[in-house]
Design a protein around this nucleic acid. Structure first.
Length: 733
RNA sequence: GCGCGCUUAGCUCAGUGGUAGAGCGACUCGUUUACACCGAGUAGGUCGGGGGUUCAAUCCCCUCAGUGCGCACCA
């Protein structure tokens, strides 16, 4: 043995595990009957492995490896998300280099391109995960656009539809004029921008010398105004309520109304109401039954509903022109500098327009309640459905527990105020909605997962399928059970669902976690998982976001290349605490590598001079000397605390304790003392050797979830009489 | 505006109601056959400021400051 652990041995060890079938629960021969399962948060097909993935994968692998050693039938299902909008944008970007748009190709060819992309790049991230050492069952890889997965999506949609929770409506929604699709609030990013707050005079219809003043940053939208609103409590405008104003440029009369949502203290206290292009105004228009005039179209240009001179202009151009015209009419009273945050498309950074659009919505009131119930405090909100509809054999988790607990509040706050979910997107890459429109009665539609032979409405026409696809998160919401073949009652579904743990990033608690919980409760009657671990965001050492485009990202694969997968895992695991952020410090990885070397060298010493003898450690060795007693006692304590820490998902603390034990208790003290003991007669020598091996073996076991490669490699070198693979050795309890 | 975090050794961070710990770094000594990616040791902190509860607070409460994040607003 060299004084350094081997390099490039990880591949060999990984293959040993795979050949042994240890990742596949069906092949885990010695597993007891209990089951432990995890569904991986499927990375986007466009994704490249970043530190977040590495941390997440490490956490899951630590959990699953310990459970496997404890004798559970463990299953960790890997997979990939088709990531509708993200992938579509990537493919479009590629096309742009050839000066093509998706519209040049047409839908079918474009989708074929996207599949090509998937075939070419889809496995990359999974292979990268393998380098970290993840023990996923690769015979069960899922993709959210697999045939059976699409069936699950359709089934869920029909289920909701039959319940009357799906409806189609034209309403103001977030619209990306580049992606040409609707977006949910969660898919926006906000960017601060200096803009101008413009105070415009709207003359009264019958007393043209009198004005009411409104303030706006988007003057061009005034062309679509259908009212002016003031707060009912506002005394300044008391006399004007109910009167009409004459809307300049558009030359229409619109009423002055009251609405409580108007802030008395902002601007002039009077707002222009543009229901077509503002979510708040849209709400006002519903209560006051106002007209909705769409003046901005799907391309982000002024529509034919705008006065002729503005038609076809981009909104920015129209803004300038509106200002010019108002200036000429003397209707601008002042302009203030104003910093506001404007919404942009998270994927392509185009400014979002609010426009009215026909979309599909999922009613959220019941579902939100269900999701809240899952984390309800029993004392305050008794869980009603605990027994209803659940067979006694089924695993029903009473509660979904967040770790750290504080994230429950984020989850609950969102659900309390949630709006109906717009589940349709005007994209091409994704699960196409199984909705078919009658050609004769164009407003009527029916639902069919298969291409219908005839129209279910008129019976004569060839119905046309909706061109919309589902929001990516609609399919992701089904992940923990759709991966097992749901809605079919498959063996896997029965056996491995619900899963035990979900580990994920905090920014998708609402986007994903909550939606999995209510989908699962509604579709299966069970919570999808019992525990949700929200891991820390990995930042740069000076606290900045790791970003590929800013060049601040650290590539986990480079770290693996440089220090080895174990060192990286250990360095990361070391930093798993309840904190929100990790300021990534490479010195932790270096410490990880040094520790691996230390374990290696301790083994070298213990094996040295042991010859070809074999040792049996079936029985716990009996301590003779005070050193023996001390180390055995400390080991016992360590085993206990490690189990407690790991059950609490306190992996950082667990590995620190193991590290300290191994290095400072075992190596610095016991091994040093053992050198003398070995020279004090045959009996003492043999017993000391037994203790050395015993402590080493147990340390390897405790370390294995954290640094699986080197521990397995070392284990393979040990002269044990009873030997299998460390990955399935019995966990110290 | 509301909410949630964080502020502990030079750096990155643990931690506990009883006057503080790790890793890295610094310094001193050491090349004794597991390991110099090592060993033995040293220095270094009134645990952000102020107030309170307590016999006792870094840990609990209040408040201020700095910093990060989320939500709402974004006319």
């Amino acid at each position: 043995m060299d004084t350094r652990p081997p390099i490039n041995f990880e591949e060999k060890i990984y293959q040993l595990w795979q050949k042994g079938g240890f990742f596949n629960p069906d092949k885990l021969k010695n597993a007891k009957k209990k089951v432990f399962s995890i569904a991986i948060p499927p990375p986007n097909v466009t994704g490249f492995l970043h530190m977040g993935h590495a941390l997440n994968a490490t956490i899951q692998d630590i959990i699953i490896r310990r459970k496997r050693m404890q004798g559970f039938k463990t299953l960790w299902v890997p997979g990939i998300d088709h990531a509708s909008i993200a992938t579509q944008n990537v493919v479009e970007k590629k096309l742009r280099k050839e000066n093509l748009t998706r519209f040049d190709l047409g839908r079918e060819k474009f989708i074929e391109k996207a599949w090509e992309w998937k075939r070419e790049y889809g496995d990359i991230i999974l292979n990268q995960l393998k380098k970290i050492g993840v023990s996923c069952d690769w015979s069960r890889v899922k993709f959210t656009m697999d045939d059976d997965y699409i069936k699950a999506v359709y089934f869920a949609f029909s289920h909701y539809f039959n319940k009357g929770w799906i409806y189609r409506d034209k309403r103001a929604i977030n619209w990306c004029s580049r992606c040409k699709t609707s977006l949910s609030d969660l898919e926006l990013e906000y960017e601060e921008e200096k803009s101008k707050l413009i105070f415009i005079k709207y003359p009264l219809a019958d007393e043209k010398e009198k004005y009411i003043e409104v303030a706006t940053t988007r003057p061009e939208t005034m062309l679509g105004d259908t009212a002016v609103a003031v707060n009912p409590k506002d005394k300044r405008y008391k006399d004007l309520i109910g009167k009409n104003v004459f809307l300049p440029l558009a030359k229409r009369e619109i009423p002055i109304i009251t609405d409580r949502s108007v802030d008395l203290n902002f601007g002039t206290g009077a707002i222009k109401v543009t229901p077509a292009h503002s979510l708040v105004d849209y709400q006002i228009s519903l209560t006051h039954k106002l007209k909705i005039i769409q003046v901005i179209d799907e391309n982000g240009r002024m529509s034919e509903n705008a006065p002729k001179e503005f038609q076809g202009l981009k909104t920015e151009e129209a803004r300038e022109k509106v200002l010019e015209n108002l200036q000429k009419l003397g209707l601008i009273s002042k302009i203030e500098e104003y910093a506001n945050k404007i919404p942009k498309c998270e994927r392509c950074h185009t400014k979002i327009e609010i426009i009215p659009s026909e979309q599909w919505f999922l009613k959220m009131d019941e579902l939100a309640k269900m999701a809240m119930e899952a984390v309800a405090d029993d004392k305050i909100h008794p869980v009603k459905s605990r027994k209803a509809g659940i067979s006694p054999k089924a695993k029903l988790f009473n509660r979904v527990n967040f770790h750290p607990k504080r994230w429950e509040k984020i989850y609950l706050d969102w659900l309390k105020n949630v709006h109906d979910w717009c589940i349709s997107r005007q994209l091409w890459w994704g699960q196409r909605m199984p909705v078919w429109f009658c050609e004769n009665e164009k407003k009527k539609f029916f639902i069919s997962a298969e291409k219908p032979k005839k129209c279910a409405i008129c019976g004569k026409c060839k119905p046309k399928q909706s061109t919309d696809v589902f929001d990516t998160w609609f399919s992701a919401a089904l992940w923990p059970f759709a991966i097992f073949g749901w809605p079919k009652e498959t063996k896997d579904l029965k056996k491995f669902f619900p899963t035990n743990v979900l580990t994920t990033a905090r920014d998708i608690i609402n986007l994903w976690v909550s939606r999995m919980v209510f989908s699962s409760r509604e579709m299966t009657g069970k919570n999808p998982f019992a525990d949700v671990i929200i891991y820390a965001t990995v930042l740069t050492k000076d606290g900045k976001r790791m970003s590929k485009s800013l060049g601040t990202g650290i590539d986990p694969l480079e770290l693996i290349e440089k220090y080895g997968a174990d060192a990286m895992r250990l360095g990361l695991a070391w930093q798993i605490t309840d904190s929100q952020d990790i300021r990534f410090d490479e010195s932790n990885i270096i410490a990880g590598r040094k520790f691996c070397t230390k374990v290696w060298n301790a083994t070298r010493f213990i094996l040295q001079g042991f010859g070809n003898k074999k040792i049996s450690l079936k029985a716990k060795p009996k301590p003779i000397t005070s050193n023996d007693k001390k180390i055995m006692k400390k080991l016992g304590e360590l085993i206990k605390s490690t189990n407690i820490d790991m059950e609490k998902f306190a992996f950082g603390r667990a590995i620190e304790r193991i590290y300290h034990f191994f290095w400072h208790e075992f190596c610095d003290i016991y091994i040093e003392k053992s050198k003398k003991q070995i020279q004090e007669g045959k009996n003492k020598k043999e017993n000391t050797e037994k203790i050395l091996f015993y402590v080493l073996l147990n340390s390897l076991k405790l370390l294995h979830p954290f640094i699986p490669f080197i521990t397995e490699e070392i284990y393979q070198l040990l002269p044990l009489k009873e030997k299998k693979s460390l990955i399935v050795e019995s966990w110290p309890e």
